[in-house]
C-alpha cells in the first residue's frame, strides 16, 4: 500500500498531530524526517496515502500547519 508523509514546522505539532489522528482511528507513525524532503523538524508522520484527505481535513481543523508528500 502506498504511504505518505506529513511534515511539520515543530516537533510539538508533529506530536499533536499524532495524537489527533490516532484519536480519529487512523494508522500513523512518527518517523525521522526524510532528509530529501526537509530539515524543518526532526520528526515527520507517516500515514496510509488512502487516508490523505481525512488526514488533511483533521489537521487543518486542528489548525496545524503541514505539508503532505507521497513517499516514493
Amino acid at each position: 500500500m502506498s504511504q505518505g508523509v506529513v511534515l511539520f514546522h515543530t516537533t510539538t505539532s508533529a506530536l499533536r498531530a499524532e495524537k489527533v489522528l490516532q484519536k480519529a482511528g487512523l494508522t500513523v507513525k512518527l518517523i525521522p524526517t526524510p532528509r530529501e524532503l526537509s530539515s524543518d523538524c526532526g520528526i515527520a508522520l507517516r500515514f496510509e496515502l488512502s487516508d490523505r484527505e481525512t488526514v488533511k481535513t483533521i489537521l487543518t481543523d486542528a489548525k496545524i500547519e503541514i505539508e503532505i508528500h507521497p513517499i516514493r
Binding site: 515543530t10 516537533t11 506530536l15 499533536r16 495524537k19 512518527l30 518517523i31 526532526g42 520528526i43 515527520a44
Partner: peptide, 22 residues
Amino acid sequence: NPGRSGHRLSIAAGRVVYDTRE
C-alpha cells in the same frame, strides 16, 4: 532529547513533554 532526533527515545521524550503541555 525531545524534538531533536527522530529515534524512538527522542520521540518518547517528546510525547511526555507534549502530554504535560496538553
